[in-house]
Design a binder for these strands. Structure first.
Length: 1145
RNA sequence: GCUCAAGUGGCGGAAUUGGUAGACGCGCUGGAUUCAAAAUCCAGUUCUUUCGGGAGUGUGGGUUCGAUUCCCACCUUGAGUACCA
């Protein structure tokens, strides 16, 4: 009886289907186990051998768990919404549902051939209305929820409305939009419906927001960052601009911390966890707010202007002022300590530029200047007088003077005098009372509210190193603070950066660019003015879109300061030994240790940690900052301008979104005549004629009926690809349920996925979003678990081995000339001309005859032609290439007619060899291997085992057919243990000791391997077992029956066949896994390796119960030992009983 | 740049806690069977060698009686990520 794998496999596939062998029950006494594969997108290309790798691994594990007595849920379905079907629809006009159906059928056929133990009764397709009904439902649940930071979970929106009605929003601690306007209960209750809804939208877990997107007008769609190359669309090369669009967003940021914390509880590969951690990007620091300094009257107030110094000279003045602040005279310092921090009731600044001067101290509010005259002033009385005149007469300041002596010796008198002056002078804070100094202590915007710039910093300890601020060009304050002088430059800069995509901006790190706005902010502690720049190295989308630039401690700030000649004050002093030279001055010092803070007032002398804490403490004291945790994670945009996706269950009443009630779902995709965006840039659903919501009848009706009274327009966007895949694991638990997304009983029983296998490319997409939705459904009480996937394994990609032929780059020949790989390599490495080779000569004549260029053939000449650059590698279809890399030339010519007259320059033996290179397996590279072909030739069991045998599951590896014969002949050998030409050869006689040892060794190893997901090694183990049992001529049922169960997860068809031949009427799939018994492995002796200085030289068999001393004696007495010692006396003899003997000396 | 992973024969890869490096398979070589081929079976196959042996797991160092395994530095390759303040 031969091993007819094709018949056997067909027979058992049929049996499994007819008997529903792998149907999982939602009620069972057995413990549950849920094994899930990342479901595929059914593409038109079908499956290649890379796809089933993970499915085979999960199938082995599922079958193993069934043998181990588990109730196993192992489902499969399709992520069937997606771009390729839509793209195809646009090209051909064919409805994407039709192509999707065709592709799914093909996938199913291919999957079936491999013998998976899927429970197909639970199949899901994300594009089925039965399924997306619940995707829409989850969306509406998100819409009707908000995130309460106090309880740290999502809650129904009703609880928020109650809070608003009773206490307004000031006591509510929610994750919500920025720029929330505070209101009281009275105000809320007085709001009209529209105002209330608008406010609620700022709190909902899914909300409409203006989001900046990459808009391509020519394609009429939004492009993802990776669809843009050099600022133009990858497809078609059309220009792309950044544009704000109103889109749905998901407030995933509410879950940032929980998504981070949850990683500690799940068994996922570390690199995957790392990439989620990085993606969420938690950073701890402080929020600091900087006041924008007031505008000078001379600048005309209004929207722009600067303070007190003359604009044209300001940078020079500021430099100088800063220098002077650093080295105050003794008198200056004494007075400063007495008047700073509003000690006299009014705020003073020191070394402040006023017009073209720098005055010692000034109270801007009272327009009072204090000058201290040192020795030098005696010599320049005239200058001082004219300066005083100018300040007093032209600018309206009052100047009072003291001498050094007065300040140092009679400070009380001095202070008294200043106080008197302050009391005598009116406050110029009020706009109307001073025509000269239009603004108060802080800059104000046109509505009169104080302007401030909020920044986030991870280094509050470096606050005294700030020498400028940078805003993102898109920052909303830019327009308000820019001075008239700078307006042109700023405008030009913003236009220039708007043209670049965000990715481009991020990729181009080297170019430093920015513009000064003309405005200044005030340092919260020193009160020094800080110039405000804009620069595109600051991203609008991260943090607040503004940074406090500390050039001495940040590389980008340093580069920017250097480039624009902005001062780089240093606040670091090295504490390392030897001290680091030039830190903070010659380069930005970014380390967090090895320094103490200097030039930083109250932070002086502190290290990183203490300074950080102290700075936050002081910021909180003056109300200009607080400790803060910032996340890189952004809210996820949830709208797509596509057709082939889930429609939103949303209609608009006066522009306010309303969701459609659960009982009216699903809202099905409407028909459209074309799948393109509309001419006026609306998404494809804008083409639908029947796409309006009748709120009275609760049905979708024709657009003509829209009256905005009972019939309203529906949302035109669709949901993104990740919507359906974020929760599908729960649908499998109860796939047919029409009343709930899954019943409570099913959810409680199956809980979550015990083992999830799939590719690592979903790290920050699908795997993050499904964790988010799971946590959300958990918060609302639908789930008892808050993580979807307990254990996850990334299977490595199977790569293709592309085949290449090499075409000579030459326009001299009528017909192309293709070279065989080895011949070409030889020629190139030997640097000879072609003419010296027989192969070439053979066809040279014919080449000449066809050559239309009478001047001859260039390649017969010099070496310079024989370089790889002269040849273009062309992909050949790998199916024309045999195992020895020989090309079937005729097949190739037939496949590519443009090469039907090509010359093929072969090897000496007449064969034509292709070059090989490992690339991703893809249709466009003609390196796809179809699993069906392997099944035809070797059978599914061989394919399954071979895919596992290829190497560790997690590792990427090229597909290479070379080893498959070995696996196939193993199965034949395995078969022969049970059957010969006359049928079954199994006997009931007891097995030999050796055979039992082989069996139990195998049980142990295979069990360990499966538990460790080391499937490649268990295939080897089976091979060893079969080799040994064959050698032992074992035919005992006692051994071979358990062996069939052992192998059945890997090669289920052959196992079923042998199992039934052994007389069983039931499927092998639930036969108990063989029990390992250690007694069969007990040995009495051991081949001890005897090593000298750690090198094994010979082995010696000794009884295992021999004592350490006896072992040493026996070894030392051995003649080979003497031979290796060459007369030396060993220094030491290490004996590890049962392991090794090592002789040192 | 940053983060992570990985470097072992001609090839895919094995070596479980630090204890005989190269299991198992492919390929290759020789042989048996055969008219021949396929299939099957047997033997050999890390390199080197003066046939005693010597060297050897990316490179250099360290710990240890003993290192593919642990530590340090470096090199190479691959993956992810990127002005994240």
């Amino acid at each position: 009886m031969k091993y007819h794998f094709n018949d056997i496999e067909a027979k058992w596939r049929k049996y499994w289907e007819e008997n529903q062998t792998f149907k999982a029950e939602n009620e069972s006494d057995k413990p549950k186990y849920y094994v899930l594969d990342m479901f595929p997108y059914p593409s038109g290309a079908g499956l290649h051998v890379g796809h089933p790798l993970g499915y085979i691994a999960s199938d082995i594990y599922s079958r193993y768990k069934r043998h181990k007595g588990f109730n196993v849920l192992h489902p499969m379905g399709y992520d069937s919404f997606g771009l390729p079907a839509e793209q195809y629809a646009i090209q051909t006009g064919q409805h994407p549902a039709i192509t999707t159906e065709t592709n799914i059928n093909r996938y199913r056929e291919q999957l079936d051939r491999i013998g998976f133990s899927f429970d197909w009764s639970r199949e899901v397709r994300t594009s089925n209305p039965d399924y997306y009904k619940w995707t829409q439902w989850i969306f509406t649940e998100l819409f009707h929820s908000w995130y309460n930071k106090d309880t740290d979970k999502a809650e129904p929106i009703e609880s928020l409305i109650t809070r608003f009605t009773n206490e307004g929003n000031t006591t509510v601690n929610a994750v919500c939009d920025e720029n929330i306007v505070p209101f009281t209960a009275e105000m809320w209750n007085a709001y009209d419906e529209e105002q209330q809804q608008k406010t609620l939208l700022q709190y909902r877990l899914t909300y409409l927001a203006e989001t900046e997107v990459n808009w391509c007008p020519a394609l009429g769609t939004v492009l993802a960052n990776d669809e843009i190359v050099n600022g133009v669309s990858e497809r078609g090369g059309h220009p792309v601009v950044r544009k704000k669009m109103k889109q749905w967003s998901m407030r995933i940021t509410a879950y940032a911390q929980r998504l981070l914390d949850g990683l500690n509880q799940i068994d996922w590969p570390q690199p995957l966890k790392d990439s989620q951690t990085n993606w969420i990007g938690r950073s701890v620091g402080a929020a600091v707010s900087f006041k924008v300094l007031p505008l000078a009257p001379s600048q005309g107030g209004g929207t722009a202007g600067y303070l007190t110094g003359k604009h044209s000279k300001i940078s020079m003045l500021l430099d100088k002022a800063q220098e002077m602040r650093k080295s105050p005279t003794k008198a200056e310092e004494t007075l400063w300590q007495e008047i700073r921090n509003k000690k006299l009731g009014d705020k003073f600044r020191r070394q402040q530029p006023i017009d073209t001067f720098i005055v010692d101290f000034v109270c801007l509010e009272k327009m009072l200047i204090i000058e201290i005259d040192g020795e030098i002033h005696k010599n320049q009385k005239d200058v001082d007088e004219s300066r005083q005149l100018l300040l007093e007469v032209k600018k309206g300041y009052k100047v009072i003077r003291f001498s050094n002596d007065e300040v140092l010796n009679k400070i009380e008198n001095v202070l008294e005098k200043i106080k008197t002056e302050l009391n005598n002078r009116p406050s110029f804070k009020d706009k109307s009372s001073s025509p000269l100094l239009g603004r108060g202590a802080g800059g104000e915007d046109s509505e009169g509210s104080e302007m401030k710039i909020d920044v986030f910093t991870t280094r509050p300890d470096t606050i005294f190193g700030v020498s400028f601020m940078t805003l993102a060009p898109e920052h909303e304050l830019v327009e308000k603070i820019t001075t008239p002088e700078q307006k042109e430059a700023v405008k030009a800069y913003i236009e220039q950066t708007a043209k670049r995509s965000e990715r481009e901006r991020m990729a181009d790190v080297k170019t430093i660019s920015g513009v000064f706005t003309g405005a200044y902010a005030e340092h919260p502690f020193s009160n020094e003015p800080i110039p405000i720049w804009i620069g595109d190295y600051v991203l609008a989308s991260y943090g607040t879109g503004a940074v406090m630039a500390v050039p001495c401690g940040d590389e980008r700030d340093y580069a920017f300061a250097k480039h624009y000649n902005i001062p780089i004050p240093n606040i670091f002093e090295s504490t390392s030994t030897p001290p680091l030279e030039g830190l903070g001055e010659d380069f930005a010092f970014t380390e967090k240790e090895g320094f103490k803070i200097v030039n930083s007032d109250f932070l002086n002398g502190l290290g990183y940690k203490e300074a950080n804490e102290k700075a936050i403490e002081e910021l909180e004291k003056i109300g200009q900052g607080t400790g803060k945790i910032n996340y890189r994670l952004r809210d996820a945009v949830f709208s797509r301008q596509r057709y082939w996706g889930e429609p939103f269950p949303v209609y608009y009443v006066n522009g306010i979104p309303k969701t459609i009630d659960h009982e009216h779902l699903p809202i099905q995709l409407p028909e459209v005549e074309k799948y393109l965006p509309t001419e006026d840039g609306q998404p494809p659903l804008g083409r639908a004629d029947v796409w309006a919501w009748d709120a009275a009848q609760n049905t979708v009706v024709s657009n003509e009926l829209i009256d905005n009274n009972t019939v309203f327009p529906l949302e035109l966007n669709t949901m993104p690809g990740w919507a359906g895949s974020s929760w599908y694991l729960f649908r499998y638990m109860d796939a047919q349920n029409d009343d709930e997304f899954a019943s409570q009983e099913a959810l409680d029983y199956w809980q979550n996925v015990d083992l999830y296998i799939g590719g690592s490319e979903h790290a920050t997409g699908h795997l993050l979003y499904s964790r988010f939705w799971t946590k959300f459904l958990y918060d609302l009480g639908f789930l008892k678990v808050d993580e979807p996937f307990k254990k996850l394994i990334n299977q490595g990609m199977i790569l293709g081995e592309s085949a290449f032929v090499y075409r000579l780059n030459s326009s001299q020949f009528v017909n192309p000339i293709l070279f065989s790989r080895n011949f070409l390599e030889k020629v190139i490495s030997e640097k000879k001309s072609f003419a010296e080779y027989q192969e070439y000569k053979k066809i040279e004549n014919s080449l000449f005859q066809e050559n239309k260029n009478p001047r001859g053939v260039l390649i017969t000449g010099t070496d310079s032609q024989t370089s790889w650059n002269n040849f273009t590698p062309l992909h050949s279809n790998v199916s024309f290439v045999n195992i020895s890399n020989e090309l079937d030339i005729e097949a190739f010519k037939k496949w590519l007619p443009e090469y039907k007259d090509a010359h093929f320059i072969t090897e000496d033996d007449g064969t034509f060899k292709v070059g090989r290179e490992v690339e991703k397996m893809s249709k466009s590279k003609y390196n796809v291997v179809n699993p069906d072909d392997i099944c035809d030739q070797y059978g599914a069991d061989t394919l399954r085992m071979y895919e596992m045998f290829l190497g560790p599951l997690e590792q990427a590896k090229p597909w290479n057919m070379a080893g498959i014969t070995g696996v196939h002949s193993f199965l034949k050998k395995f078969w022969k243990l049970y059957c010969d030409d006359n049928g079954l050869v199994i006997t009931d006689s007891p097995a030999s000791k050796d055979s039992l040892k082989t069996l139990h060794k195998t049980i142990k190893k295979v069990e360990e391997d499966i538990e460790n997901f080391s499937f490649n090694t268990s295939v080897s183990t089976f091979m060893i077992a079969v080799n040994e049992l064959t050698a032992q001529k074992c035919s005992s049922r006692e051994v071979l029956e358990p062996l069939a169960v052992l192998i059945s997860p890997y090669a289920p068809h052959i196992a079923e066949e042998l199992w039934s031949k052994l007389g069983h009427n039931e499927s092998i799939s639930t036969a108990p896994f063989p029990q390992f018994d250690a007694c069969h492995l007990v040995e009495s002796t051991k081949e001890y390796p005897i090593s000298f200085n750690g090198k094994m030289r010979f082995t010696l068999e000794m009884p295992l119960d021999l004592s350490k001393e006896d072992i040493e004696k026996t070894v030392m007495a051995h003649e080979k030992t003497k031979q290796y010692l060459e007369g030396r006396t060993p220094k030491k003899v290490i004996v590890v009983p049962g392991k090794i003997v090592n002789i040192v000396g």
